[in-house]
Design a protein around this nucleic acid. Structure first.
Lengths: 152, 152
DNA sequence: GAGCCTCTTGACTGGATCGGTCGCGACCTT
DNA sequence: AAGGTCGCGACCGATCCAGTCAAGAGGCTC
């Protein structure tokens, strides 16, 4: 299950992606536009800044903005930062592998085989979807061309 | 992330599936074979019984056994019983749908679009994999015919 | 029916995580 | 130097996770 942190982060990033190249956006603006508790959002944006996703500027005319183009920021990366590994089990994680204490033979663990499939399918979707992708999908729906969302 | 509950449940069910048709198996046996805390496993098996997955017999010669054939018990069903919905967000769940409080228009929510893909991919794998499937995959690995596990 | 075996049930725990909130800085711009 | 903005540490209540404990209820065998 996606935490609210990740969900809020993605919502906020979508706002910043839409505004990309047009200067900083206030935390308060983002919070209000997306209905996110302001103080909680501060925490989230700070973390994203520390991980290099965002940049910030203090003082008047300050705020947050994306550190790179929206097409270079993947959903998977954001979720890994805020929620940790995507894999349903540590023993199938690529970014945070840990073997199961009680498994004699990992290779012949049926659960692992299935969960590896799940991890791969999930990671494939999340890592190949960028903020820009999401924006254009939303755009496609809004302008009534829903069929585009299946063309990817 | 899969909880230990679900993981233990699947491990236990694999044992019971292997033993299917050969009478009840003791909780203690399952616990020992799979390295699961006994008391904790009791809880899990009881829940699975209450949900109709397992049956039990008390007294000497008693124990737990599957309520139906291993090929009729899906991984997805087990995980839903113990961990709740598979969907990463309530607003894309088929079995426990709930709309997002702060979403104005659900259809044009980019996050929802992506998470729906994730849900569908995950559910497809989990719901189409049965205990019998897992058993035969494990068998394939054990007998050295790993390539079979990709043929499905 | 005694005694043992096995599941059943409810209460309890310690620790972690989630989803926030508060207050005071630090820093930047004008 | 004033006011706007992010930065950061502390704190909080609720909930969930993983597991334990003690007692009991039902069934079997002798």
């Amino acid at each position: 299950m996606l935490s609210k942190k990740s969900k809020y982060a993605l919502k906020a990033l979508m706002v910043l992606a839409k505004e990309y190249g047009q200067g900083p956006v206030l935390i308060s603006d983002v919070a209000q536009r997306e209905g996110i508790p302001r103080k909680f959002l501060e925490l989230i944006l700070l973390e994203l800044k520390n991980q290099g996703i965002l940049q910030s500027k203090k003082g008047k005319g300050g705020g947050y903005f994306l550190g790179r183009e929206p097409r270079l920021i993947s959903v998977g990366h954001i979720i890994r930062i805020l929620d940790g590994p995507i894999a349903p089990l540590p023993c199938v994680s690529k970014t945070a592998y840990m073997r199961c204490r009680e498994c004699r033979d990992e290779r012949s663990c049926g659960i692992r085989i299935v969960m590896k499939e799940v991890r791969d399918a999930t990671a494939k979707i999340m890592d190949s979807t960028s903020l820009a992708d999401m924006l254009s999908r939303v755009e496609a729906v809004v302008t009534g061309k829903e069929s585009l969302s299946f063309a990817i």
